[in-house]
Design a protein around this nucleic acid. Structure first.
Lengths: 236, 236
DNA sequence: TTCAAAACATGACAAAAATCATGCATCTTA
DNA sequence: TAAGATGCATGATTTTTGTCATGTTTTGAA
């Protein structure tokens, strides 16, 4: 399927200007480069599982990953969508708990694994990186709080529109400039919105009827973004 | 109304073993002690407002504070409940944004203010404290993600039961061992649960009919906690 | 103390959303 | 390539939840 460059050095990594680690001091980047382990996960494969013990952090080189919780009755709730340059697994590590969510590749994905001890020791000696991590955590917390408010206050129609825009923000369009460059099942979209699969299907059909999107299986084209923004009823 | 001890030193503060700052090095605690500003906010007064610029962090000495977002259509969503020893205002500060939530005293509350520059400089020189902050942020992020999942997947009845238990966990009982030691309006409880005020009122009445709680104005007594836990349908 | 405003309570109704059922399409794999 | 499984789509129905209306109680300020 997808082809990746041979895992090379952090110094030549495509994400060296994107990820939090780009703020680390040169000496630490070299150390990370020596100890990192590169891996490729095929679509659907699990990076780590909710409930298991974290041994390090993951840095996505190229690909797409979903992070999801299991609700008390076993229903998936997608917490975050990740792309190249994103780091994951740090939350559980930093609070000293087991993973509270599972990470699953949405397509073939190349990932660097950085062992816990190294991550912690670099964080201890590199104040700049520590601040970047705090900023990252603060940003994620902010996003979670906004999502929480929307989940509590907005109807599903608005949340679906918002989710489509969020997917676009995260993964962008394909070359044609309208097709979302990720394939998610209707169920996954529902688990992102926080609703029943049927409701998502129905509303997508309505959006299509209204000319805002075009549907072709898992391919979703966004035809009228402005209307979609209006439907999402966003303030900012 | 409520009487507080005269603002004294951090070294003799009632929260010196509770807050994140207890992990700071002695020299920094002394510095904080010199620069901190103690203040008392009366019930209903605002510590800071969503949208305004953060000049420091707040450490609650004694009292109760709610942290709430305004939804896109102006409805309050209560994000967090804070008590003595809790720190607030750090999220916006660390991510370099304006406050994304407002902090309002739920009762007369004594608060220490620590200026931004001092907070940042201590954080820079004290790795231990930086790690505590990362842990704090990670824990908050975790809580937010769990809340998010419940908001998306659980019916209101379960969420109200969970919220009552959460209030109890946060603020505890009065001397009688059954009365929640905070007075929240039905609207505030609704804004914590994420539902309409009327739904909250109705469900509280049902809980009362079922003998799980006793209601006397804003006084809420929890009579059968086990049943409440069952009603909340919690896994952990 | 009294009066107005706010909070609480409850019923009736409407709207939103979930669930159940069924059929069709698409993908997988023997 | 056929058959089973999975995913998509849609209708019918029920349940949940929100909204509106109205009355009562409580609270707080003059």
């Amino acid at each position: 399927m997808t082809h990746f460059h041979d895992p090379t050095t952090c110094q030549s990594c495509a994400q060296r200007f994107t990820s939090v680690f780009c703020k680390a001091k040169q000496e630490f980047i070299e150390e990370i480069n020596e100890q990192k382990i590169c891996n490729i996960y095929k679509k659907g494969q699990t990076l780590f599982n909710e409930g298991s013990y974290p041994f390090g952090v993951y840095c996505i080189n190229d690909g797409k990953v979903k992070l999801s919780h299991l609700g008390d009755d076993g229903k998936e709730q997608i917490i975050r969508l990740l792309r190249g340059g994103d780091v994951l697994g740090y939350r559980a590590l930093l609070s000293g708990e087991r993973y509270s969510a599972s990470a699953i590749a949405l397509e073939d994905t190349q990932v660097c694994f950085i062992p816990k001890e190294l991550f912690i020791s670099v964080l201890k000696s590199d104040t700049g990186l520590a601040f970047e991590m705090m900023k990252l955590l603060s940003d994620e917390l902010h996003k979670a709080e906004v999502k929480l408010t929307h989940l509590a206050q907005k109807p599903i129609r608005e949340r679906l529109a918002e989710t489509l825009l969020f997917i676009k923000e995260t993964y962008g369009f394909e070359a044609d400039g309208v097709t979302l460059s990720v394939r998610l099942s209707r169920e996954e979209i529902a688990n992102l919105v926080g609703t029943a699969t049927e409701s998502t299907i129905r509303l997508l059909s309505e959006f299509k009827k209204d000319g805002m999107v075009e549907l072709d299986g898992k391919k979703i084209k966004i035809l009228r973004q402005k209307e979609l923004i209006k439907t999402a009823n966003l303030q900012d």
